[in-house]
Design a protein around this nucleic acid. Structure first.
Lengths: 232, 232
DNA sequence: TAGATTGTTAATCGATTAACAATC
DNA sequence: TAGATTGTTAATCGATTAACAATC
């Protein structure tokens, strides 16, 4: 293969460049992928068939070079010389994101936020299904959240032993979060979506996605505060 | 002004190094500050008086060098040679984050999520107060969310003209988000907390904090998916 | 083919980490 | 003082952007 520029020195042969998806996906890219998918799906539904990286990048809000670089991590995303085909990209991203899978979620904490999560239709449509809800307040246990009956927190461990669960969702006070997280981890749940305002200590093969609403709001207020002190 | 790096033996006097907070705060630091504050406040309440950067960094989950670097952006955070004093740090961070201010929030979208946000006590305790709620569904207008009565979305603009509002909160379907955001912007609101799954186009002096729950969950599921395909 | 677009390498930019002088 | 710790500069690392060869 003619590959490579290979200036002065390094006479060595680069015998293979497999490119396959063993390449590490940057953290930031993992966050952009859902956005890519959302916008591409929208275009597809509107019947758009093709779009250039420049066009797409405007709609998505990233630089054209970044879009091309990002898609370069995966196979079946575009072909050199041709403009991108929307449906192909959608299919490739659905595959990459694992959207053909059904993920089973268990909610811990049946407060306002927890109820909002279970009742949000968008999740089920994308294959994320809440299969059980737990809480430790006596007056909440036995009530319904959507179609699910709230179960006693003390029985979470038993439940997990007899049901496959993909993602544990923590929507409860910070004080209780670590303990419940431990239960999820002990029973083999490998992903936790955490809305409690606290850091969780988990083994490194367990994934945690933090969604700290208070921190997010404080960060916004901070930026507002500094922009006001600076500008006017 | 004299500024400048001026290499080649720097015989010149550095007559002043104002250090003052004109330095640009990195985006990522703005996100870490609420975490710093939360943990420091907790330590303060537990009566801890002093802690080293190493100790703090373990509790917070950042590198010691990063903590020192971050605090170096601000005044009154520690003194060379001394260990950090928790109360001083708390006070400095409260000042930096603008926590002595009261922020007035208006919610657009009185669905499950919107209700959860208004009903969450933690916000009010930190000085973030919801002062009005709007929705456009006839059967929701006039109902109560906490102590607030839901008002007709059509009257949002009028409301904003006669009340100072710091932050607009969007908890409504993506299709409606841009229009409501435009209303906020037109009436001078400079910060938007956006839970709708859509990008918002706003003037560059308007701050937007996105909180895309679906994207967050998809990103987590994606990482779970890839870690499963890779490892076992 | 000529023009246009992607894929991919190299350059730039920004953020994190390491190192160490200044300080107590 | 000696030991320990911060503040701050320099080095490293990673992510974004630019450039251009490969391709249609």
């Amino acid at each position: 293969m003619p590959r490579k520029t290979r200036l002065a020195g390094q006479p060595e042969e680069v015998d293979e460049v497999p490119k396959q998806n063993g390449n590490r996906i940057p953290e930031r890219l993992a966050q952009r992928l859902p956005v890519y998918y959302r916008i591409l799906l929208e275009l597809s539904e509107r019947g758009v068939e093709r779009a250039s990286s420049t066009d797409l990048s405007h709609r998505i809000g990233v630089a054209p070079a970044q879009l091309r670089q990002d898609l370069g991590y995966f196979d079946n995303c575009g072909q050199q010389g041709y403009v991108y085909r929307i449906d192909d990209l959608c299919a490739a991203l659905a595959e990459i994101l694992g959207l053909d899978h059904r993920y089973k979620l268990v909610l811990a904490g049946a407060g306002h936020l927890g109820k909002a999560l279970v009742n949000y239709d968008g999740f089920r449509r994308r294959g994320y299904q809440f299969v059980a809800v737990f809480d430790n307040a006596a007056d909440v246990i036995g009530t319904r959240v959507g179609v699910l009956e709230v179960q006693a927190a003390a029985t979470l461990s038993d439940y997990l032993r007899s049901h496959r669960v993909d993602i544990g969702v923590l929507a409860l006070p910070a004080e209780a979060a670590q303990k419940v997280a431990d239960t999820f981890v002990e029973q083999g749940v490998k992903a936790i979506w955490n809305f409690a305002s606290t850091r969780l200590l988990v083994p490194e093969d367990v994934l945690v996605e933090h969604q700290h609403l208070s921190d997010s709001l404080m960060s916004l207020a901070f930026r507002l505060h500094t922009s006001r002190s600076a500008a006017p």
